[in-house]
Design a protein around this nucleic acid. Structure first.
Length: 758
DNA sequence: ACCGTATTCAGCGCG
DNA sequence: TGAATACGGT
């Protein structure tokens, strides 16, 4: 056992030492929040608290995993493994698999992801013959989700005059009806959506006093990470579980609450002290991450928000470099400027790619940076694309597994019944839906015995249906006799799915085939895991089955286990995705009105404050050097649109910036205003003009002697070399040079500062 | 049943 | 612009 207190500062130590009774830790950016949480769990374990009595709720799976690893390091593995640590969803799914029978769910209930839910809503809208222009599935699902977050079931929703009024005014009076049908269909499919995992947990604790008591006794110590991002149902569950002994510790930073748009309630953290009058509050105000410059600028930015818990973030770190500000004529040039700057810093300071991150407001902004980085052969990775488990082919195979495990799972059935094609088309399925509804049984029952339910199909189709049902049943029979991997592969082959993908020789088809192989490998890893960290020995065997894998996989997002080797890359991601991360060099890009802050946020003060917190989060990701950038014109939906610098830039005082007298910044450039007068100028012409005015090619001195192929040159890092090719113009002019020491390199003349030898 | 073309839409996204 | 989906023709 280590003396864990040595590694903590005083504020951190006090927070960790306080174990009994409610407490709140307000942790400024970079102040060691995770450290406090992990050390607190370690401290509890060292004091002899049974790990089974500790509940630690995190925001992401990744956070839970990393924290668990750290705690294992601190106290020794066997104990820490048994702490109930995970996301709200994964912890409560686990509880509902045990307790769900009380509410009519099987222990193998399916978890519908957003795509499944949307399809179901979409089907219901179609079945009700509603105008799909008016009833957009995503919007309706948002209303339903919001209702569930606020503990309103379908009955309560339909009795709520205010909600009815809103839906009526919005021209969607039947939203409540859709909600009722949606929930009924989930139930008959033995399925829960993501919100149900929380709502049903609440209902369980609310309706079954013995269940409440059981879990209150079990979770004697409760810790909640990122408390500022919890929503109402999460808040209620925590309150109920903690009501008995109030050994609850919440950790968060109101200044970093950035998920209000999906129901997170910042009031939860702001009113914690009112909820628990006996609570202690600890503030972590020393920042270990960033320079004084960055911390100072961040403090000034967030000071513009009204509602917050007072704190003063400070640091002992160096003053550091000033903040850079890039202004470019277009988003394309913004990409070039940022990529060029990354290249320059890499060269000057011998830095790895991984020292850099580009953070943007929306995913659509990534393109100009991708292209510019690729042109310079800079390795990068984009985070937040389509995750592995959301790919079509992966979901298809998973749908087979789902159906085998839970035959009531209607979304899964619809997905695979005719994939690969087996002649069961739309018409047949529509008939089956009608028959199932008429008799009041599940689709699966109709399909597996079409005659009995009077399905009006010809004998050929009836045979096909029965063959399909027989196949699924044969898989089901193997559930307990084969391990997860063997059965998964058997299903992939026997269903014809693998063959179908194998026959597609297009590059995309090959990739899909490989994804299936990857999925099967993941299952193999899973089935070979020696022990699962379950509550008691009895579950361990079960965890190696396909059902066990499926239960896990539904709550996974990114397959981030294999990126251990290729970690050296520039990171491109949205600011939301960057929460909790840090990088030596950070570029926050696209700082323009209507983009950041976004257009939708300008109507309400609360939304604008959330945007500002988002900006605060972005700025505080930087450790050593921060660059802010904006473009005067940006391609939006295919049209070059003029844009104004973000109001947030005005909140960074000039003395924090390294180009304080950069001409024309305070009054947005002549080029930009010229183009904003003319709504759609001839793009090429206008562009050139703006480019000249803004002089984005500074740093490239045209008077220097021109570098030509055949010349011998010297580079400060690569040494002497011979110029092979020179191409491009202006700031994009680059040379291919062969260096005996390191081989062939492409260099941007703008940054490489090559010395001509002869 | 399937494929190519037309149309539409465009915010961040945990589980 | 570009991706995702709807539609209409074969």
């Amino acid at each position: 056992m280590k003396d864990i207190f040595q590694e903590l500062n005083e504020a951190q130590r006090k927070a960790v030492e306080h174990t009994d009774g409610p407490s709140m830790v307000i942790a400024g950016a970079g102040s060691g929040k995770t450290r406090v949480l992990t050390f607190k769990v370690a401290h509890l374990l060292n004091q002899g608290v049974d790990p089974f009595n500790i509940l630690a709720l995190t925001f992401t799976n990744k956070a839970a995993r990393e924290m668990k690893e750290r705690i294992i390091e601190l106290v020794g593995s066997s104990d820490a493994r048994n702490v109930w640590m995970g996301t709200f969803h994964s912890i409560f799914a686990r509880i509902l698999r045990i307790e769900g029978h009380r509410m009519g769910y099987g222990s193998n209930f399916t978890i519908y992801d957003t795509e499944d839910s949307k399809r179901l809503v979409s089907n219901i809208i179609k079945e009700l013959n509603l105008d799909k222009k008016m009833y957009v599935p995503g919007y309706i699902l948002g209303r339903i989700s919001n209702a569930k977050i606020n503990l309103l079931g379908p009955e309560a929703y339909n009795q709520n005059a205010e909600l009815m009024q809103i839906d009526k005014m919005a021209g969607k009076p039947r939203t409540g009806e859709i909600y009722s049908l949606y929930n009924r269909r989930l139930k008959s499919s033995d399925a829960m959506d993501f919100d149900d995992l929380l709502f049903n947990t609440f209902l369980l604790l609310d309706r079954f006093p013995d269940a409440l008591l059981k879990y209150q006794r079990k979770f004697r110590y409760i810790l909640v990470d990122e408390y500022q991002d919890t929503n109402h149902v999460q808040y209620m569950i925590i309150r109920m579980l903690a009501a008995d002994n109030e050994n609850i510790c919440v950790v968060g930073d109101d200044a970093q609450s950035i998920y209000g748009f999906r129901g997170a309630n910042i009031q939860n953290i702001l009113s914690f002290r009112r909820d628990y009058p006996d609570s202690r509050t600890f503030k972590l105000e020393q920042n270990y991450r960033s320079t004084k410059t960055i911390v100072g600028a961040a403090n000034l930015i967030i000071a513009n928000n009204k509602e917050q818990i007072f704190k003063e973030i400070w640091t002992q770190n160096d003053e550091g470099a000033k903040i850079s500000l890039f202004r470019t004529p277009t988003d394309t040039e913004e990409g070039n400027m940022v990529a060029g700057s990354i290249f320059e810093h890499m060269m000057n300071h011998q830095l790895p790619y991984s020292a850099f991150a580009i953070l943007y407001r929306t995913n659509a902004q990534s393109r100009s940076f991708e292209e510019a980085l690729r042109r310079r052969n800079i390795v990068y990775r984009i985070y937040g694309g389509l995750s592995f488990y959301k790919r079509k082919e992966v979901k298809d195979l998973l749908a087979y597994f789902r159906l085998v495990i839970n035959s009531k799972d209607e979304e899964a059935l619809q997905r695979v019944i005719n994939y690969p094609a087996r002649g069961i088309g739309k018409t047949t399925m529509e008939k089956a839906v009608v028959a199932a509804a008429a008799v009041g049984v599940s689709m699966w029952e109709v399909i597996s015995d079409p005659r009995r339910f009077g399905l009006d199909v010809n004998s050929g189709t009836a045979t096909k249906l029965q063959e399909f049902a027989t196949m699924i049943r044969s898989f089901n029979a193997m559930l307990n006799t084969r391990n997860a991997y063997d059965l998964a592969r058997h299903i992939a082959v026997s269903s014809g799915l693998l063959k179908d993908l194998y026959e597609d020789k297009t590059p995309e088809g090959v990739a899909r085939y490989e994804n299936i192989e990857e999925l099967l490998n993941a299952i193999k890893d899973f089935s070979e895991q020696p022990f699962a960290d379950q509550e008691s020995g009895e579950v361990q065997e079960g965890m190696k089955t396909l059902a066990g894998f499926l239960a896990d996989v539904a709550l996974l997002t990114d397959a981030d286990d294999k990126d251990k080797e290729d970690r050296n890359h520039v990171s491109l991601m949205t600011i939301h995705a960057a929460k909790g991360l840090e990088f030596p060099y950070v570029y926050v890009v696209g700082l323009e009105e209507n983009l950041f802050p976004s257009m939708q946020s300008l109507h309400s003060r609360a939304d604008l404050e959330e945007e500002r917190r988002l900006f605060y989060v972005a700025v505080t990701r930087a450790m050593q050097h921060l660059t802010l950038s904006f473009a005067e014109n940006r391609y939006r939906w295919g049209v070059l649109t003029p844009s104004d610098p973000s109001r947030f830039l005005d909140e960074v005082p000039a003395n924090y910036l390294d180009q304080p007298h950069r001409a024309g910044f305070m009054a947005p450039g002549a080029g930009a205003s010229a183009s904003s007068v003319t709504p759609s100028p001839p793009p090429g012409k206008n562009l050139k003009k703006v480019s000249n005015l803004a002089g984005s090619d500074e740093g490239y001195d045209a008077n220097e002697e021109e570098i030509l192929p055949g010349m011998e040159v010297e580079h400060q890092r690569f040494g002497k070399g011979k110029v092979l090719v020179v191409e491009g113009y202006g700031g994009n002019r680059k040379a291919t040079v062969f260096f005996p020491a390191v081989g062939q390199k492409q260099l941007l003349l703008k940054f490489a500062r090559l010395k001509i030898i002869k």
